[in-house]
Design a protein around this nucleic acid. Structure first.
Ligand code: MN
Ligand code: MN
Ligand code: MN
Ligand code: MN
Lengths: 256, 256
DNA sequence: AACGTATTTTAGTACGTACTAACTTTTCTG
DNA sequence: CAGAAAAGTTAGTACGTACTAAAATACGTT
């Protein structure tokens, strides 16, 4: 019940520190950026949230004081157990809201992310659980992202991207980024949605377009778009080869 | 779409000043406190919002700068046209959300106010209109409060309270305050809900309990509770008498 | 009209959150 | 490994929103 508003105090703070919406978004960003053993970089958090890196430094110190993250100066940030729990519940709220808006209120799948980005901070646990129950406790959102359980369990498998599938390989679309409505419409126009099965027909050199068969129909997809689509169960057609996955690498921070 | 968050700037401000949730709540409070020609007092706004009067003074100056209220120093505040428009749209959002939560998600009517108080600031116009459409564009919320239209029209009639009905008078329950869940449960337990028809059987002196017939059953109601129930179409049984209504008085601010 | 009380405003402070500019540390590269 | 580039932090500022304490104004009562 009742998530806190920002500037003021309004409600006496009880045990739980009553995080602001911004703090919650930071935790979510960190959750999404850290992988395995690699901490989330300040710049990465900043660009994810559209905020100056200097501002992020400040907030991370606050979150550290609250016991929600561990920060090693100049070396990145990772969630503590309790920070992770907060992030997962926020993600649960986000994804259930998206699912509800699509299934019950007729929203387009490319139109729910921003709405959920705000509602996730205002919706009570009771509301979320009622929505979830009404939907039959879904396990994935409209973009294929897994929904954490109330207990904070979630499928954390990482899949390879469609962009890195080899020619001849077949796979099932698992999920895609939902942060860009244009991308989602681009993909929808090509039949790329969670559950679709794809097969790479050919690829052009120099990052040229990828030709794929999507549920029997032949389609062309830009590699930039394909990089935001994750697929599972890839199977090469003729001879199996190791694919350099964009999956669980952990050693270094990727540039961009 | 997208109501602003507080501390930061985050989105470039376009034409519309993008009010914070708090500012919106102030406007709503002023709307509900000013009646006819009487301005809303600073203390009244403060106690309504649970905020110190000094803080309210500050915010009112900001709202005045934004052209949303007129403030006459030491004399009270009233909404400008545009402030009123903001307040009415917020109230529309609030009441549609309450209605939706009750009708579509099985919330109890005494449990939706706080939820709506937060969601009203996060829900986009699109979401609200989809909810409204799904409900068949209701004209009143679960507590009998009229829902302003998209154009900002609303039934502003004021009714007398059940507490001021004379013995023998019959009336229909129009609405009740929704800000106290305990009150709502108290009323529900006695069958007092919008549309119920009541008749005052007797009243005790010194603000004692009021005995009423509610939809045929006899019930006892405390005057403090009855003061938060508004009724319409009152009709005295035998001889009609002027009732000193707690309705449209405007000259002085009531104490408390 | 004068006084005392209620109402309202100002002054000074705090905190969350953001920004830019300047500085520090780490990492990469030749 | 030295120097440059990238990444991250600190310093100083701003704004919205709250608070308490003190001062100003208005109002009801004698
Ligand atoms: Mn968010
Ligand atoms: Mn999603
Ligand atoms: Mn509100
Ligand atoms: Mn209501």
């Amino acid at each position: 019940m009742s998530r806190a508003e920002p500037g003021g105090r309004r409600h006496a703070a009880q045990q739980a520190p009553e995080l602001t919406g911004q703090a919650e978004d930071y935790l979510k960003a960190i959750y999404e950026l850290e992988q395995g053993d690699a901490a989330a970089g300040t710049n990465a958090v900043a660009s994810r949230l559209g905020i100056a890196a200097a501002s992020v430094s400040g907030m991370l110190q606050r979150l550290a004081r609250l016991g929600l993250v561990h920060t090693e100066r100049y070396r990145g940030t990772r969630l503590t157990e309790s920070g992770r729990a907060v992030a997962l519940q926020l993600i649960r709220r986000h994804r259930i809201i998206e699912s509800y808006l699509v299934s019950r209120l007729g929203f387009a799948w490319d139109d729910v992310h921003d709405e959920a980005e705000r509602l996730e901070h205002a919706a009570s646990t009771e509301l979320i659980e009622r929505m979830a129950h009404d939907l039959g406790n879904p396990t994935a959102d409209p973009h294929g992202a897994p929904i954490p359980t109330v207990e904070g369990k979630v499928d954390e498998r990482r899949f390879g991207s469609l962009a890195s599938l080899e020619v001849g390989a077949t796979a099932r679309v698992s999920r895609m980024s939902d942060r860009d409505a244009t991308l989602l419409r681009y993909l929808a126009a090509r039949g790329i949605r969670p559950g679709a099965s794809v097969r790479v027909v050919s690829r052009e050199a120099f990052d040229g377009p990828i030709v794929v068969t999507v549920d029997r129909k032949q389609r062309t997809i830009s590699p930039a778009a394909a990089a935001n689509v994750w697929v599972e169960g890839e199977a090469a057609a003729v001879h199996t080869k190791r694919s350099a996955g964009a999956s669980g690498r952990s050693s270094a921070r990727r540039k961009r």
